[in-house]
Nucleic acid binder design. Structure first.
Lengths: 195, 195
DNA sequence: GTCTATACCAAGATAGAC
DNA sequence: GTCTATCTTGGTATAGAC
């Protein structure tokens, strides 16, 4: 665990972010000290400042990395032919991507208020871009009569909120398999936006 | 604002809780200091300890008061005759009760991890009791064929998650009236649990 | 690149005067 | 019941040796 000296430029950075990620998710940004993160990594507190100018930048980096990863992964998916299929794809993607990264997800929406205004603005823009991709699906489906919603913006937020709820209770190995959960949520989402 | 002396037993307590409520909601429990709360009330930090044994108890008190209020208010409602009407009542009650108390709601689910294990257990039990009242509605409706859901527990959590989403974006005086929002969400909830 | 040591400040909580 | 003053601890961040 605790090393005494040496040069580890390539691995210490990722280790710091990994430790910060877990600790922030567990205890919250404000409740975690730089000393705690350093102890977890096995270095002294001062060494952290070779990798981040300050604590705030560490948080921002974690949230930015996560959002970029989310957007780029979704963008790489092959686009289905119909709006209904696109919605199904979105539901499956959203549930799986998020369930695989509980710490990142938790931080991404619990620690928004601990970002500086500038950093907050940037993360918010990324989040909105992701929401927009769902709203576009709903708009497309609405146009061709596949969906029937009173307001695509509200429906977008309602669907995402419903899906995010999975993260608060789902645990692998529990009563329900991931496939079952995905199926149930897909049913509810589909019914909520169709006539 | 800043008073200099005197005896204010009856009003200082509530003022402290009100200040703590707002500050915790805005900045997070861990990021708010007792000195900040005291300054907001207009007393010195030491004076707070005449009203709470410590900071943790202050948080617990706020969350407990909120949950008790939620449960007792819902319990006082007249029970509708049908499951469908009961669900409609729940949706309207949930949205309105929560939108009227954004700070309490925000704290109640953002600061759970800052409770001691004992306090956490108590608050969790109250939250579960509230969820159970919705699940009972879904079970009743499922029995008489009014609803069709794959799993009442999952449907309960999905519906609450969807409704809670309103709190993240709705602002009075915005594009949509409260009645409109309630109507839209009721439509989506109803469709999501019926065939 | 990491260490030890430390500057500097603010936190929660308590003591005793009024 | 509130004040002032203070104890003790731990926070972020930096300096300089290795």
């Amino acid at each position: 665990m605790a090393r005494t000296q040496g040069s580890h430029s390539d691995i210490t950075g990722p280790r710091i972010r990994k430790a910060a990620l877990r600790l922030f998710a567990q205890q919250g940004y404000a409740a975690v000290s730089m000393r705690q993160i350093a102890a977890d990594v096995g270095v002294q507190a001062g060494a952290l400042y070779n990798y981040t100018p300050d604590k705030q930048s560490l948080l921002y980096r974690l949230m930015n990395d996560h959002m970029q990863h989310l957007l780029s992964t979704y963008a790489k998916l092959e686009r289905p032919a119909t709006a209904l299929e696109a919605l199904r794809q979105f539901v499956g993607f959203h549930i799986r991507f998020h369930l695989e990264r509980p710490d990142e997800v938790f931080i991404a929406y619990m620690e928004l208020r601990n970002l500086t205004p500038e950093n907050f603005g940037e993360i918010e823009a990324l989040r909105r871009a992701y929401e927009d991709s769902l709203e576009q699906i709903l708009k497309d489906g609405q146009e061709v009569g596949a969906f029937l919603v009173a307001d695509t913006k509200m429906a977008t937020l309602a669907v995402i909120a419903m899906l995010n709820g999975v993260m608060t209770w789902y645990r692998a190995g529990g009563r329900l398999s991931l496939d079952e959960v995905e199926q149930v949520y897909w049913d509810m989402v589909r019914r909520s936006v169709t006539a």
